[in-house]
């Protein structure tokens, strides 16, 4: 087994996640793609932790999971708010921040 194969798996998942973020219209689906990205990063964390025989990698993967939970909570709240105000969760429609 090589460290490389885990890193490549993570890279593939990361890129798929980025693709999802950039192409999905639905706000909830965008959030899901972000979860995919975070998972890819987590694989890297754990793989390097094992590679260096250091629990730090695993600990930070746990922190990332916690932060991801917070992110989903706030993100969904925002999506719900947008839905409530605009009757649509198409992220392309949310362009009120235009300068």
């Amino acid at each position: 087994m090589y460290l490389t194969q885990y890193l490549l798996l993570a890279a593939v998942l990361f890129c798929i996640g980025v693709y999802g973020v950039l192409t999905r219209r639905n706000g909830v689906l965008v959030l899901m793609s972000i979860e995919l990205i975070l998972n890819a990063v987590n694989i890297n964390m754990v793989a390097f932790g094992t590679y260096n025989a250091d629990v730090g990698g695993q600990v930070f993967a746990l922190f990332i999971i916690a932060v991801a939970a917070a992110e989903v909570g706030v993100g969904l709240a925002i999506v719900l708010l947008i839905y409530r105000n605009r009757r649509s969760i198409d992220v392309s429609d949310a362009s009120l921040m235009r300068g």
């Binding site: 992220v91 392309s92 921040m97 300068g99």
Partner: peptide, 18 residues
């Protein structure tokens, strides 16, 4: 001028950022 960058489109921001 800075306003022009602020198109308000999330996708544009995300594409640009990535």
């Amino acid at each position: 001028l800075l306003r022009k960058v602020q198109s308000g489109r999330i996708r544009q921001y995300a594409s640009l950022m990535f």
